[in-house]
């Protein structure tokens, strides 16, 4: 298992960052997202909102990966989130549903409002492989490097959506 974590501070308030996070597909940094559907969504008695989304992502296999094992480089991903607008926290976990023996990637993200009105994002990533054939470590390292690069791109995607939201709010009604 390989683990990675990182924190990032947005200057914007929690509500607009959360909105941008939920609206992040499509954006120019997420051309690999082929589809995104809400499969369940419920308001809980305590007032939080729990959502499951099913996302199809296009991936790329590294050149050294054995041919003929993974028939297509697409992957179904499940994203489970809980939004608490009273405590101003979002928690969201994402993991792939297929090719799990080759590689399982789990991401957990938390967005929380800071005391000075900014938003702190904390991200954790875990990468496992049960592939064997002497490739487990190589696959996990590759997965971790991809995870780090994707995290950067995904943040840029959220920032693009954020600036669009900011602009639209400045427009007179």
């Amino acid at each position: 298992m390989r683990f990675f974590s990182q924190s990032y501070l947005y200057d914007d308030s929690w509500s607009i960052v959360t909105l941008a996070f939920f609206l992040r597909y499509p954006n120019p940094y997420a051309a690999h997202v082929l589809s995104c559907d809400v499969i369940s969504r419920d308001c809980t008695p305590s007032g939080t909102l729990v959502t499951k989304r099913l996302i199809l992502k296009q991936g790329n296999l590294p050149r050294w990966f054995p041919k003929g094992i993974v028939s297509r480089a697409e992957s179904w991903v499940i994203e489970e989130s809980e939004v608490d607008p009273y405590g101003q926290v979002v928690r969201c976990t994402t993991r792939n549903l297929d090719h799990v023996k080759v590689m399982q990637v789990e991401e957990s993200v938390k967005f929380a409002q800071t005391t000075d009105g900014k938003t702190l994002q904390h991200t954790e990533g875990r990468v496992f492989s049960r592939f064997g054939w002497g490739l487990t470590k190589k696959i996990e390292n590759h997965g971790l490097n991809k995870f780090k690069a994707n995290l950067q791109r995904s943040r840029e995607g959220v920032s693009v959506v954020l600036s669009l939201l900011r602009q639209s709010r400045l427009q007179p009604m």
Partner: peptide, 12 residues
């Protein structure tokens, strides 16, 4: 529809 509701939901 959801997005316009959600915007209000986020700011109780």
């Amino acid at each position: 529809c959801f997005n316009s509701w959600f915007e209000g939901y986020l700011e109780p």
